[in-house]
Design a protein around this nucleic acid. Sequence first.
DNA 1: CCCCTTAATGGTCAGTCAGACTATAAAGAT
DNA 2: ATCTTTATAGTCTGACTGACCATTAAGGGG
Lengths: 256, 256
Amino acid sequence: MDGYDKYAFEPFAVTVDLAVFTVQRGGLRVLLVERGQEPYAGRWALPGGFVRPAESAETAARRELAEETGLADVSGLHLEQLRTYSEPDRDPRMRVVSVAFTALLPDPPEPRGGGDAAQARWLPYGGREALAGHGPLAGHGPLAFDHDRILADARERVGAKLEYTCLATSFCSPEFTLGELQQVYETVWGTELDRPNFRRKVLATPGFVEPVPGAARLTGGRGKPAALYRAGGATALHPPLLRPALPSQSQEGQNP
Amino acid sequence: MDGYDKYAFEPFAVTVDLAVFTVQRGGLRVLLVERGQEPYAGRWALPGGFVRPAESAETAARRELAEETGLADVSGLHLEQLRTYSEPDRDPRMRVVSVAFTALLPDPPEPRGGGDAAQARWLPYGGREALAGHGPLAGHGPLAFDHDRILADARERVGAKLEYTCLATSFCSPEFTLGELQQVYETVWGTELDRPNFRRKVLATPGFVEPVPGAARLTGGRGKPAALYRAGGATALHPPLLRPALPSQSQEGQNP
DNA sequence: CCCCTTAATGGTCAGTCAGACTATAAAGAT
DNA sequence: ATCTTTATAGTCTGACTGACCATTAAGGGG
């Protein structure tokens, strides 16, 4: 950071890219826009835009989130910096450094198409379609630029943070059932969890969820009505709720 | 990312800042440079510099790491992106977006002063001096720009990653004793760990460490000589090695 | 040379927690 | 009325953790 006048430096364009996730009908969905122009015309991409002169990347990301989702109030939504992507050739036109963010929405609104005739949609990401061999975006990929990688990084980060934070409640409405909360974990992790055990763990963690005092119950379909809970005051999970270790993962070296 | 020609965008300067940690004599140290020019002349700052036109931020960070430490080969060192700091007023001269990195060194070389008469030093960070009330940098703070915050974020990130990755071996020489490895945990976390339990946990994790086959032993001082180990092939810790939860942390909400 | 200190290593034991599983309750569907 | 579905309650076992105690192998000091 020393000696600006001694070293040459090139100006960069700085953008933000958003990986906005939601859990809907048991599947993970991500907000994508269809590009109307070259490069990558017709390909899907993460929503995003330039950081303005008086903005931080965080401010720009929240502004873009409001614009792209059409939500009036995005102040309560979870928005978190993922990392910055700066490969010199990631945009063929010019040098663009992009700060990527991850956002989580409980109930996704119908997205409005962007200004330039590009449509925006919630596309399923991962899940059953991926297992059928069409890739994580089920035929809508690959994305423009390096957005496939950004999206994969974002999903991995969200999955990891579910383990040791209370982030899962950000995917849920203000009042939710434990079944809905469990669906969030199962959807993001792509695994199934034992319901009684999940319940025991969540309720045993102080501040994770708190019961809605009105003893209100509600159900959408069959079965016994479920009790409603709100997010508690805690943000971290100690000890964490670990996802089941896949047999072929995370321990490549073995001790004899 | 759509329509570059439709929206105004400002060029930014993009820099990298490095939080380079090492564990020495039982204390955590960080590489800092003393600024020779305004702004913040005479204050200490994180090493860093501009990203060049053909570089990614990662490439620039590794180049800066080599330059600042004077090490011939930094290819094996741990270098990881922390996050990007982009507040509009973080540099009083111009709009600078900085991508911060965290690096870990086993045995720190004597740093060479930067080109512009600025000296570089390993300063103790946190530890006993901090408890004496002089702040985490024991009288050398506050740092220039927003580097205090970057440094705090970096330390927290390193501490968190020790829990669920094998990162701690990056602080150690190629061959190390379990006592040295434990010192890394204790130094970064600022807590004491039970030696037999730590040993049991480390050895029970496949791929974390592997014994040096030559049954080589080595000691610096008194006591029984310790067996030497190398880093194993694993990168993740499943289940994690959790730092002892401080009584006043992480669970502000309590369920009745 | 003997004893003390230091540090590494080996082991025990009880409490806690996670995974697997069974059982009961309360709703809609047929 | 009975079945299906979902929520909730509880049990049991093995694994893991934290708190210990014991032993081994070095150096230092009398």
